[in-house]
Design a protein around this nucleic acid. Structure first.
Lengths: 235, 235
DNA sequence: GCATATTTGTCCGTATGTATA
DNA sequence: CTATACATACGGACAAATATG
């Protein structure tokens, strides 16, 4: 290697070129399909058909299934196969309890967080408003997720961040179960804006209060819709 | 089936008899081995040898590896194999940040938690003191883990509970990295007792303060020991 | 730096057991 | 209750990457 070339070794590895296994690639695909709702909750994922579709062996596909089951996006039923997770009203309650535990303390301690992390919260709000202006409801939902992800990130722990991402991904399934219209997301955008304004002002208490209300009303709305649906499907 | 027998169907399924896959069984074994320190951080897990030892095919073993990699107990290096995760000082910091995010808010809101959950905290303290009386240091460490698990459980979310278990399991790896002597655990038992007493008294603020100190000193102790070790191994 | 041995990554075929129509 | 479809699990094979001398 010549001296003019050896700087190459010092460059960071491109994340996309990082050699990754087939199982992870398939898991990545399936994950986006599930999160985007192209695979709706409750459907069974046939080993035989999917392995042919993605041109991987059934063994490799099963490794991908294991990864996604741990993320609660898929559920494994012994000798019956894997299905897209279909959350119940019980799950909705637990998801919101988890979010309260993650988001509220993070917001309450936002004074100690780097300003950069607070700006990320604002960026998510901006993105949501741009999406609304363009009437891109899917992107609006994504921006809302990123907003709450940014709130949890104020805690400053990579592990918390990843856990939060999982919780939010599962929350997306909740919306897919009920084919949530945009009305579910729409009123929350202004709420997000107020929360960020309070945060930027250093008024953690106000931000915390707003977020508490947000989570309570959102949970109530979803749970009542869920129990109605669950009782309907029972008949 | 006769009428005298059909009551059997109404009995709840025994949890242990629940049909489970080979991959999960192997994963359970490996998990306890890793947590108990029988497989020390950094060692490679040979597919060929382990599949022969546990009498499962390589494919099944690999499924188990995927499960444990998601739990951060194992790490997968492409084309090199899976290794027992060896946390760095950076990981220690992140783990404690995660624990602060989980435990402190749970303790702060303990007033709303069911009394049963507070009793579970006390039970863990008792168990730790019994273990100390018997000089069973391994059991003492387990009781300490269970104590903090019980603290996080005050939040009342099944998902938080599971995440906390993972964080604590990874924290165990930290102790295994440095072959932690009992002196690392011993002084914290009295601290646990004080935290529980404050909780039982309904004095969440005091409990929270004690826990903050606990986590700070524990983190400092571990991180300083870690960086010393890391610099030593660099030479 | 190179050739070799080892180990992983991936696929296929097959036998067995389980759930469901 | 039988039959079919499918998941579970195994073992062998080969290519590709890595570790070793």
């Amino acid at each position: 290697m010549t001296a003019t070339e050896d700087y190459i070794d010092r460059l960071p590895e491109p994340a996309l070129a990082r050699p990754t296994s087939q199982a992870e690639r398939v898991a990545d695909m399936l994950r986006t399909f599930v999160i985007d709702g192209e695979l709706t909750p409750g459907v069974r994922l046939s080993e035989e058909r999917l392995s042919r579709k993605y041109e991987v062996s059934r063994n490799t596909l099963r490794e991908a299934f294991r990864l996604l089951s741990r993320e609660r996006l898929l559920v494994h039923h012994m000798h019956r196969g894997v299905f897209v997770n279909r959350p119940t009203s019980e799950d909705v309650r637990d998801l919101f309890n988890a979010r309260r535990s993650l988001e509220l303390p993070a917001v309450r301690g936002a004074a100690d967080a780097p300003a950069e992390l607070v700006r990320a919260v604002g960026a998510a709000v901006d993105e949501g408003e741009r999406a609304r202006a363009q009437e891109d409801w899917w992107r609006m939902g994504s921006a809302n997720m990123r907003f709450h992800e940014a709130l949890a990130a104020l805690a400053g722990s990579a592990r918390i961040n990843e856990f939060m991402r999982q919780v939010l991904a599962e929350t997306r399934l909740v919306f897919h179960v009920m084919a949530a219209p945009r009305e579910f997301h729409d009123p929350y955008l202004n709420w997000n804006r107020r929360i960020h304004l309070a945060l930027a002002d250093g008024d953690a208490a106000t931000a915390c209060g707003e977020l508490t209300e947000y989570l309570d009303t959102s949970e109530n709305q979803l749970v009542t819709a869920f129990v109605a649906m669950e009782q309907g499907s029972r008949a």
